[in-house]
Simulated scan of single mutants.
Amino acid sequence: MDALIIFIKNPELGKVKTRLAATIGDQNALKVYHFLSNHAKEVAIELNADRFLFYSSFIDNSDIWDKDYFIKKLQDPSPDLGQKMFAAFSQLKDQGYQKVMIMGSDCYDINVDILIEGFAQLDSHEVVLGPAFDGGYYAIGFNFNLLAEKDLLTDVFLNKTWSHDQVANEAKSTIAKHGFSLHQLPTLSDVDVEADIENFRKKIF
């Protein structure tokens, strides 16, 4: 069984895209967040997999994420992103999912073909990684049937520092240390600062 994980923040003014809001304001940053969330939703719906949406604060059954397409859950309450991802992957692994991938909800360049490639490559690779130009990653996935070691998730996600330009490289090094095969997806742009929205600004404002 295949599963796709998406993390989102409940869209509250002043609490999403804060780096972007520093230059375009809270209201406009919230507009960008809604635009990107809708894009992520449309991409995910095209994928033939079980789709799990993990909310940051509370489950919203009246938002754009139709519960007919998305299984809604809460993120682990830890403030640490790595712990949140570790908990989500572990939960789906324990539910019997073989191939599980997480995608970011703030990458306008992502499309369903990239996700399909990721799941297809997990047939022959233990891990897939979608690096971002800022040094992070917009997607990471695992084939739990191929993973012989149970501590890879621990080493990839726990006791890590996030939001710096070596996040993807650190993940690659950890995977290599365990001797697992990694397939790298295309490098894409996340949206963090105003320069990141230039290609689609006119679609929002």
Rank of each mutant, 00 (worst) to 15 (best):
W162F: 12
F35M: 09
I116G: 04
V191T: 15
R201S: 11
H178D: 04
P186K: 09
K99Q: 14
H34I: 08
N38L: 09
F52N: 01
K15C: 07
S105W: 05
S189V: 09
K31I: 02
A176K: 13
G14A: 01
K172H: 01
K99V: 04
I114S: 04
A29L: 01
K17T: 01
N111I: 04
V16M: 08
L20P: 01
S105T: 10
A148C: 03
Y33W: 10
N38T: 09
Q121G: 07
Y137P: 02
F35E: 05
S78P: 02
L122Y: 00
Y33Q: 01
I116W: 06
G118F: 02
Y137R: 03
L47H: 07
K93D: 10
F89T: 03
F200Q: 04
M85R: 15
L152A: 05
A176R: 10
F54K: 03
S90N: 14
K15Q: 13
V100P: 00
Q83P: 02
V128I: 15
M85L: 15
M85K: 15
S181G: 06
I6H: 05
Y69W: 11
L36Q: 08
L188M: 14
F7C: 00
T174L: 05
Q166W: 09
G96F: 12
H183S: 14
G136V: 09
Q166L: 13
P77Q: 11
V32K: 07
A176Y: 11
I175T: 09
